[in-house]
């Protein structure tokens, strides 16, 4: 019975980790393509920020999956050495998740403030928008 549980948990861990890897890979490849496109076509520093925000969101989602697999793995970790490694990995991922979420919120706030400034500088009578950045 216990062996069956270990087998089931191991399969689930592999599945959840595959999901995490897929999310991170898709995010990284998409972000790289967008970085190249923005660098070649738009050549504007402000255009890089939304791409970084998008990559950050993908990384946070991948981290959530990885944390889920860590939680699953604790059910079948047989030795203290493995438990120690698991605790270290989970601590790093939790800290990273926290910092990434804070960075995303901070950058989003900065983008909103810059958009506000652009609108204020453009002024109501002229009606011409600034750079028109979206997050």
């Amino acid at each position: 019975m216990e062996e069956l549980l270990v087998d089931v948990v191991n399969v689930l861990v592999v599945l959840v980790e595959a999901c995490a890897a897929a999310v991170i890979i898709i995010g990284a490849v998409w972000a790289f393509a967008l970085f190249v496109w923005v660098g070649i076509r738009r050549r504007d520093a402000g255009a890089f920020v939304p791409v970084r925000l998008m990559l950050g969101r993908f990384l946070v989602l991948g981290l959530e999956f990885q944390l889920a697999s860590d939680v699953l793995r604790t059910a079948v970790a047989p030795s203290f050495r493995e438990l120690g490694q698991l605790a270290a990995v989970a601590a790093i991922r939790t800290a990273l998740n926290y910092f990434l979420s804070k960075e995303i919120a901070e950058e989003r706030r900065q983008v909103a403030e810059e958009g506000e400034d652009d609108r204020r500088e453009a002024g109501p009578p002229s009606g011409t928008a600034g750079r028109g950045r979206t997050s």
Binding site: E17, A21, I24, I25, L59, Q66, V89, I92, R93
Partner: peptide, 9 residues
Amino acid sequence: LAAGLLRLG
């Protein structure tokens, strides 16, 4: 960081 997370997984 994305590469490091993949390696960690």
